[in-house]
Every structure is written in structure tokens, then in C-alpha cells.
């Protein structure tokens, strides 16, 4: 299992966490290289289809990051994201993907270190969980 390199899809809001990730980069903070970051204009853009498609295409984990409540550029986009992600967890749990593989975090543009921490801890969680059922199935067939 040591050779397992988790594939994580990060859906990061352009105005906060994506800039936070930039900041982490320019500050030369080291963090796990497993996250492929996809920039969205707001975490409110993230719906069930993006998350589930990521899993179906082989993500071992999906990390959604948005602005803190009250700071969304579109006022309540992040609150929509919060409801959707909260609501998706029972589904991913019920069909055997596992709710720990889906995480939402609030990270502002100035929170470079939080990007590093979040990515590291999520990568750690996914490492412990191992490859997602989709990927295991794919490898078996």
C-alpha cells in the first residue's frame, strides 16, 4: 500500500482558495503533490455532477474549497456548496464510495498555510483509506 499515490481532485474557488494555493506556492510551502486543482469561479459552481464525475473518472478523493461564509463574491455560492456537499455525503457513503473521500474546506486567499495543511491532511486520510472502490474495480478488471 506504500506505493499508493492517491489521486485527489481539488475544486478550488478562483477568488479565495485558488489564490491561497498560489500564495502557498510563492511562499514555497511544501505540500503533498497529489492534488490536481481545478479552478472554478465559485464553490457554488460545484454540484453533484462535478464531484461524482471526478470519482467516476478515478479520483480517490475530492476536495472542494471555497471562501468563508460571508465572504463569497456571489454572496451565497459557498452556502449552496455547503448544502450540496453535506447532502452528497450520505449518498457517497450509501453506495460504497465513502464519505471521508469528500471534503469541503473554507480557505481564503491569504491562508496559504491552510492550503498546505488541508491538502496534507486530506492526502493522509485518503492514503489510509486506500484506492477508491472505482479504482480498485478498474484494476481488477
Amino acid at each position: 500500500m506504500d506505493s499508493f499515490k492517491p489521486k485527489i481532485v481539488g475544486l478550488f474557488c478562483n477568488w479565495c482558495s485558488y489564490r491561497g494555493a498560489d500564495l502557498a506556492g510563492t511562499s514555497r510551502l511544501k505540500y503533498a503533490p497529489n492534488v490536481k486543482i481545478i479552478r472554478v469561479m465559485c464553490s457554488g459552481r460545484v454540484d453533484e455532477r462535478l464531484v461524482l464525475k471526478a470519482f467516476a473518472l478515478g479520483a480517490d478523493g475530492v476536495l472542494v474549497c471555497g471562501c468563508h461564509p460571508g465572504e463569497c463574491h456571489y454572496h451565497k455560492g459557498n452556502l449552496n456548496a455547503r448544502r450540496r456537499i453535506t447532502g452528497l455525503k450520505p449518498f457517497v457513503e450509501a453506495i460504497g464510495i465513502g464519505k471521508e473521500r469528500l471534503r469541503l474546506e473554507w480557505i481564503s486567499a491569504s491562508e496559504g498555510p491552510k492550503v498546505a495543511e488541508t491538502v496534507n491532511s486530506f492526502t493522509q486520510t485518503i492514503k489510509q483509506l486506500g484506492p477508491s472502490a472505482f479504482n480498485r474495480r478498474r484494476n481488477e478488471h
Binding site: 468563508h68 461564509p69 460571508g70 451565497k76 452556502l79 449552496n80 455547503r82 448544502r83 450540496r84 456537499i85 453535506t86 447532502g87 471534503r103 469541503l104 474546506e105 473554507w106
Partner: peptide, 18 residues
């Protein structure tokens, strides 16, 4: 519908879980 409807009050909830 709860997955499509947010309220003003939620602005003051800071956590990532509803």
C-alpha cells in the same frame, strides 16, 4: 428543497457542515 435552497441566516454558520 434543502439541497437547492439556502437562507440568509446560514451566513453566520461558519463550519463546513450544515
Amino acid at each position: 428543497p434543502p439541497l437547492r435552497t439556502v437562507t440568509e441566516q446560514e451566513l453566520s454558520l461558519s463550519g463546513v457542515d450544515v
